[in-house]
Design a protein around this nucleic acid. Structure first.
Lengths: 217, 217
DNA sequence: TCTCAATTTGAGAGATATCTCATTTATGAG
DNA sequence: CTCATAAATGAGATATCTCTCAAATTGAGA
């Protein structure tokens, strides 16, 4: 009944030791979860990988599930931020939407284990969805406002976007499809959002703006 | 190096004791996985629930992962079969496609834990996908042949269908959306397959033919 | 430099899982 | 009924894992 600090006041905290340790644990969590799979990962190993004692873990997270969710959110949001930065100069909502999805799929090809970990958490974590959806929603509403998209239900459109991207990533992860699958999936999404087939295809083939480097690692 | 019989010859085997035990284990697996979650489920408990001794489990499955995948496939394929039977009298590929997805989403509302289990396996199991995709592909090609759909890439279309349905199920599972989400998601899929918005909406609202009862349980 | 609250340590108690295998029991063909 | 084979049993050796807590350490402000 003493050391239960889940979320802390968001005032002007200095980047203290506490923050650094938490970050190291998250990094270690990502590494272990991606490396051995969720089931085989243990708190012991995460702590060891982070270079802290076993008991230290419990100052930061209550359970494997908790760090798992936090780590997956960290990866997902960080990726969204970098994608957003890479597309800062793109005004077209449709192109931005395509860039987001294609970057995610490209990541899956480059770091399959990481992608697999993130997705298996994302699929059943409402918090993950809640954190990542704003990024999608921004491009979606932009595209609607620009009359690039014509949708009936926002919630259904978001399900279509996230679901299709996830399924596309999975196809890539299992090796059923190759690189060419990426623009095909992206075009399918744009068509689902009400764009004309030809234009959707063209946008989904435009070059990807390069991502800024990861701040982590 | 003796009792490793994973798949058996498919000739005219009587429904032997072996089959019955295997089936009981699968049923127990579904119950335990859905009830306690994948992580917390143990082989011990599955065996106990099936009413067999601990060691018997290993005559049938090598690991938790193996029975997990088999159980999820069993649930998924059984559902597809029942949906297919329910739609036997529907000639329109588009309507059949809508019926399939809406039945899956309806199941998610009726049996949330079961749906959650099935999806978390389905998401990263290539074998699950391989077993279920033929059902989707059948309706998809039918719709294309009937000129109800106009798609560019079959693989991308399938990703869109499965992914969007899964994401829709998740929205329902987390309670973010209600019953009205089901036709909205279905209509979005049909539009993504190239149908006109109005017609997609209309089809996605047609009544669902009732499912035949489950043979299991 | 001194002080004290925050943080970290790590050994170990307690719990539970996996998987094996020698033995027992059930099945069905002749 | 007999017997060979298939299937089931369950105790236990072995292996981890989780989570706690009293004591040691750290570091920032006075």
């Amino acid at each position: 009944m003493s050391t239960r600090k889940t979320a802390s006041p968001e005032k002007t905290l200095p980047p203290s030791k506490r923050d650094r340790t938490r970050r190291r644990l998250l990094q270690a969590g990502v590494k272990v979860f991606a490396g051995k799979g969720i089931e085989a990962a243990s708190i012991q190993e995460i702590a060891a990988t982070a270079g802290v004692a076993n008991g230290t873990f419990y100052n930061y997270f209550q359970s494997k599930e908790e760090i798992m969710e936090a780590a997956a959110i960290w990866v997902g949001v960080d990726y969204c931020e970098r994608i957003k930065a890479s597309a800062a100069h793109i005004p077209d909502g449709a192109e931005r939407m395509s860039i987001g999805g294609r970057h995610y799929m490209t990541m899956a090809l480059a770091q399959p284990e990481l992608a697999r970990f993130m997705i298996s958490v994302a699929v059943f974590s409402p918090i993950w969805a809640e954190q990542v959806e704003p990024y999608i929603l921004a491009d979606l509403t932009l595209g609607v406002k620009q009359k690039r998209f014509a949708i009936a239900s926002t919630a259904a459109a978001i399900d279509m976007i996230t679901g299709t991207n996830f399924a596309g990533i999975n196809s890539l992860l299992t090796g059923r499809t190759g690189r060419a699958h990426i623009p095909a999936v992206s075009a399918t999404i744009l068509r689902g959002l009400g764009m004309a087939p030809k234009e959707a295809d063209e946008i989904a083939r435009r070059p990807l703006p390069p991502l800024p480097p990861a701040p982590e690692a």
